[in-house]
Design a protein around this nucleic acid. Structure first.
Lengths: 386, 386
DNA sequence: TTGTATGCGTTATCAC
DNA sequence: GTGATAACGCATACAA
């Protein structure tokens, strides 16, 4: 690189302005070095700092990287560089950092439906937790029903993340998971339900424990006819946590010797409308349940709405319970008995697993956290005459 | 660069494996060129493709960049390269792309509260729209009450975005806006309310029109005593769209000659609890309003809950209307009369403005879209005896 | 039509 | 203590 001219302060800033500036005024004033040379619209680089401070770029890097003990720097030089950097409002370029092999301080979060209030809350918690560790969050959006290719692209293009967090069940996107599995960064699955994957850390809630708590509660209130509104089958399989909850319910019901007449197990897409429709179907049965477990609060809210439309009083005619404890669950009419997710804890665990320094493909974690039942007004004693 | 050795296929892949692999098995098989040399755990670069295809890296770049008309490429060569790239599962490195000066295909979205269902929907819409244009979304999370520094960092570290979208009012973060203003990428503000900023494109909804529609509706039902639940004052000022709605209400009320007894204008934080509390206060007034406008559906939901608790029937005792038309608004008890936001249109406009090719600081856009009232069950005729 | 060389802003490894 | 200098993966002006 013999031809590369040694940069002095004025040429370097000139260069920089030319590179960076668009539609820069031709008569740009070239400030003196003492002026700290802040050209508006130009993002200063380490080289700019170096020029202004009269040192080499690598020295600037050493100071700004903040490895204080690694290599000794003349305190005077350090101070000068820091001062100049501050005045020029220097910000490190994360791209260059990442390209060089360092971390990007970005966490990729793949979520199916950000409009699902539960996942919105989860993203919030993860984002907060990530920020606490100095990370930002890249949202990889994956619509349930869109072509898998989109999901793939979202992930692969997100390769510049230090880690990827999967929210909810993604087992219906096998190619995505496959690509992810032999990625060379940590992959953490949260609320992913039953389908475990090799090479992927899993953090989930103990769905069985949640369902059991709900069942204890309802059984204690005298209910023996309990309907269940689960998630929809996707390609013949129930997915994610919802599937787990369904299995847990079936097993518990059978253990208790509960009758489950035809139609008591109701499938519905995880939407308000889904819950509403399923409940209506449930109430059209010859033998009506006295209590209904909705696998998510979203379904439960739809259920409450349908009950109101049918002129049924909750909980005196029928008890309705949900799962998730969304913020709104406290403000439905009536307020919802549900299962509170340890969202913050799970987010914390997820972020921790994601940014784990010495990531080892063989040491993936598996953490199952316990949820807790929250009893409100939508559940009550089983009606006598039922 | 006389010392740089010309890379041949085998050395280059050897290098790459060493750089990239962690804990790579020492006895790594070095596959022949014909084998397409896919080393597991190694992300192939253009150089790898080039080596495998027997061409130079720049040729690979030209083919893969997909500028078909710019520079003619031998169809045979092109095919070969594409084939090799496919086999090696090549993915462009967005960091390198971005560093090189090209676009990162990343859109930064700064949102105050992702848990606010309205903004969750907005993020969803923006993300969807962004995907349609080949962009991904980086979520810059800004908690309302957190230190401004966090917001700043989130943004500045997000400098590797091609553009930034601001969701909701951010005028209480002046330093953030200032930094953003002389950024050299497009900044678009959505639902930012009254406070306009130079150099920032603004896309908002016509709040006045929405409030007027609500007022027309309520006045048509015979209501003359209308209460208003607005957002909270932040540092002495009402913020964002909520502020605009409040002003619009006041002006319309005065134009109609409506009385506004003390306490009819109610401030509350934009939460379920806020709406609930405000409504309770409203109903404790010596003279009760017969209808209440909540500035957001979130507030309205809290309001409905409070009404139920007070034993009031909606809408026969009191009408309640909201603003936003959240998905859940259809499933409240009773379902909510509200104003439907043109979220998809606004997201589309926002993304368009953000990725506008020839971005010019002087040509910022200002678009105001019209909302539409949705009449449901929470509003009815004013009670006779009121 | 293809190859060479260079730069983007960092970090890290050498020398001095 | 500090300064050259080589990557990192890609795009592109310039040569050939």
């Amino acid at each position: 690189m013999a031809t590369k001219p040694k940069r002095n302060s004025s040429t370097s800033r000139g260069d920089a302005a030319k590179r960076n500036g668009r539609a820069q005024a031709a008569a740009t004033v070239r400030p003196s070095v003492a002026n700290q040379g802040r050209v508006p619209g130009h993002i200063p680089t380490m080289q700019d700092i170096a020029d202004a401070a009269g040192v080499s770029q690598s020295t600037v890097s050493r100071v700004l990287t903040g490895a204080p003990n690694a290599i000794p720097i003349n305190p005077a030089t350090r101070e000068r560089i820091l001062e100049v950097a501050r005045q020029m409002r220097y910000r490190p370029n994360p791209l260059a950092r990442g390209l060089r092999g360092a971390r990007t301080m970005l966490l990729g979060v793949i979520v199916r439906e950000i409009t699902d209030p539960f996942f919105a809350g989860a993203v919030d918690a993860i984002s907060t937790e990530a920020n606490r560790h100095g990370y930002n969050v890249v949202l990889g959006h994956v619509h349930s029903r869109t072509d898998e290719a989109i999901a793939l692209r979202a992930v692969l293009e997100t390769r510049h993340c230090d880690a990827i967090l999967l929210l909810g069940d993604t087992s219906d996107q096998p190619r995505l998971l496959e690509e992810l599995r032999d990625a060379n960064f940590p992959v953490v699955a949260l609320w992913q339900g039953m389908s475990s994957m090799p090479g992927i850390s899993v953090i989930d809630v103990d769905n069985r424990s949640g369902v059991d708590a709900l069942m204890d509660h309802l059984l204690g209130l005298g209910h023996r006819k309990i309907g269940f509104i689960g998630g929809a089958f996707v390609e013949g399989r129930l997915i994610g946590d919802i599937g787990e909850r369904r299995v847990a319910f079936l097993e518990r019901a059978s253990a208790e010797g509960l009758e489950l007449p035809e139609g008591f197990m109701c499938d519905a897409p995880n939407t308000f409308a889904g819950g509403s429709g399923a409940f209506t179907a449930l109430m059209a049965l010859p033998e009506r349940p006295t209590a209904v477990i909705a696998t998510t609060d979203v379904l439960a809210i739809g259920t409450l709405h349908a009950a109101c439309h049918l002129g049924l009083n909750v909980p005196s005619d029928v008890s309705i319970v949900g799962f998730d404890d969304l913020p709104v669950a406290q403000y439905t009419t009536p307020s919802l008995t549900t299962v509170c997710m340890p969202i913050a804890e799970m987010a914390a665990a997820g972020v921790r697993a994601a940014i784990d320094e010495d990531h080892d493909r063989d040491s993936v974690t598996l953490q199952i956290l316990k949820p807790e039942i929250v009893i409100r007004d939508s559940s009550g004693p089983a009606p006598r005459d039922a």
